[in-house]
Design a protein around this nucleic acid. Sequence first.
DNA 1: ACTTTGACTATAA
DNA 2: GTTATAGCCAAAG
Length: 114
Amino acid sequence: MKPEKDNFFARVYEVVQLIPKGRVTSYGAIARYLGSKGSARMVGWALTQLPVQPNIIPAQRVVNRNGLLSGKHHFGLEGQMKSLLESEGVSVENDMVQDFEKLFWDPEKELGLV
DNA sequence: ACTTTGACTATAA
DNA sequence: GTTATAGCCAAAG
């Protein structure tokens, strides 16, 4: 039995959905939680396949380590990502998440280490 | 099966 | 503070 998904991507989606509102995380944190700490790029790539139309995954809560909205360009319209984050209570300025350290959500830590 | 890519990260200058 | 380069892993072409 495999309680976990075999697909790397599927796991990324689940973790992203687990991100609490008003919080943000980095690709590396998710990748590390998945077991592949070096696959931060894969996390972003997984989100690239994300269906933009049905906003089922809060990808806007996932930013790079600098708190920069690196994937904002991949959203339907530019500024969409910023709007979504601000709508959740996250202050975004110049495509950068304010108080990123404070809003940072570490799956390994918040989910209670596995 | 090999090459290229990519919403990253870390270190160096 | 920024810019440049290397390392990294997994999927798509």
